[in-house]
C-alpha cells in the first residue's frame, strides 16, 4: 500500500539524489565510464564566494526561522485567547500565497520606491528613495528574511494553534489548583504542549529557507547569494562543464537537509 508513494519519494527523489552525488564526482550516469574526481568539491572549497554564500544561507535560514517561530507562537497564543474563527481565517490568508507572489508583494511594499518609502516621505521622515533604508537586494539578505517571516509566521502560528487546541484546558485548572502561577503554567503546561509542533514548524521553515531560489533571486543581492541560487545558476549555465559544480552544491545542500532531518528525528525520539 505504501509502495506507490514510496516510488515517488524514495525512488524518484532518493534515486535522483544518488544521481546528483554521482554527477557531482564527474560521472555521467547515462554514458558512464568516466573517472571519479572530486574537482568540483575542491573548486567549491577554494572559492571565497561560496564560503560567503554558505554563511549567508545559514544566516538567512536561522534568522527567518527564529523570527517566524517567535512571532508565530505569539500569534498563536493571541489567536487562542481571542478564540475567533474569523481571526484565524485572516491569519491563515497568507498560507495559499505562492512565494513568487509573496516576494512580489514585499518588493512593492519595501523597496526604496515602494509603498512604505512613499509613506515615510509623505510623513516627512525621508526625503527621497535613497533616504529609505535599502532593505532589499542587500548583502545581508534582509529582504529575503522579511519575505520568509511574512509567509511563515502564520504557518508556525497555525501549527502551534492546532497543538494548543488539542491541549485539555483543564490541565491549566489543575496546575492552578496546585499553586502554579502564570509563568509556571506557561512553562509547565503550555510550553510542553506546543513544543513538538513548534519544533516541526521550525524544521520545515528552516528547510524551506535553505532550498528556496525564487525569493533570493527576486529580493536578494546578486552577490553574495544563497547556495541554492548558486546551484541553480551553475545548473542552467550554458557551460556544461559547470554541471558537476551544480551537483556538488546540491549535494552539500542535501547534506545540510539530511543533518537537519537527523537532528529532528533524534530530538523527536528523545522526547
Amino acid at each position: 500500500m505504501v509502495a506507490p508513494a514510496l516510488l515517488v519519494t524514495a525512488g524518484l527523489f532518493g534515486g535522483g539524489l544518488i544521481l546528483t552525488v554521482v554527477q557531482s564526482v564527474g560521472v555521467d550516469p547515462v554514458l558512464g565510464g568516466q573517472k571519479v574526481t572530486f574537482a568540483a568539491y575542491r573548486t567549491l572549497a577554494a572559492d571565497p564566494a561560496v564560503r560567503a554564500s554558505l554563511l549567508l544561507t545559514l544566516g538567512v535560514a536561522t534568522l527567518s526561522t527564529g523570527l517566524s517561530a517567535a512571532l508565530g507562537t505569539a500569534l498563536a497564543l493571541l489567536l487562542r485567547r481571542a478564540g475567533r474563527a474569523r481571526l484565524r481565517f485572516l491569519a491563515g490568508l497568507t498560507l495559499p500565497v505562492p512565494h513568487v507572489l509573496a516576494a512580489t508583494l514585499v518588493l512593492l511594499t519595501l523597496s526604496q520606491s515602494g509603498l512604505l518609502s512613499r509613506v515615510t516621505a509623505a510623513l516627512g521622515l525621508t526625503r527621497g528613495p535613497q533616504d529609505f533604508p535599502a532593505l532589499l537586494f542587500d548583502p545581508l539578505g534582509v529582504g529575503v528574511v522579511l519575505e520568509l517571516v511574512w509567509k511563515e509566521t502564520p504557518f508556525v502560528a497555525l501549527l502551534v494553534l492546532a497543538a494548543l487546541t488539542r491541549l485539555d484546558g483543564r490541565l491549566h485548572d489543575v496546575a492552578r489548583s496546585l499553586g502554579a502561577g502564570r509563568a509556571a503554567r506557561f512553562r509547565q503546561v503550555t510550553w510542553p504542549a506546543i513544543r513538538p509542533a513548534l519544533l516541526t514548524a521550525c524544521v520545515l521553515v528552516f528547510a524551506f529557507a535553505l532550498g528556496t531560489v525564487e525569493v533570493p533571486l527576486l529580493l536578494g543581492a546578486t552577490s553574495p547569494t544563497t547556495l541554492s541560487v548558486l546551484a541553480y545558476q551553475a545548473f542552467t549555465d550554458t557551460d556544461l562543464g559547470r554541471r558537476p559544480l551544480a551537483m556538488a552544491l546540491s549535494t552539500v545542500l542535501a547534506g545540510l537537509g539530511a543533518l537537519l532531518l537527523w537532528a529532528y528525528v533524534r530530538t523527536g525520539s528523545s522526547r
Binding site: 546528483t20 528547510a207 551537483m247 542535501a254 532531518l261 529532528y264
Partner: peptide, 12 residues
C-alpha cells in the same frame, strides 16, 4: 519536505 527537492530533481 526537509531535504531540498531540487537536489534530487537536478540529478534525475
Amino acid at each position: 519536505l526537509i531535504l531540498p527537492a531540487f537536489a534530487g530533481v537536478m540529478g534525475i
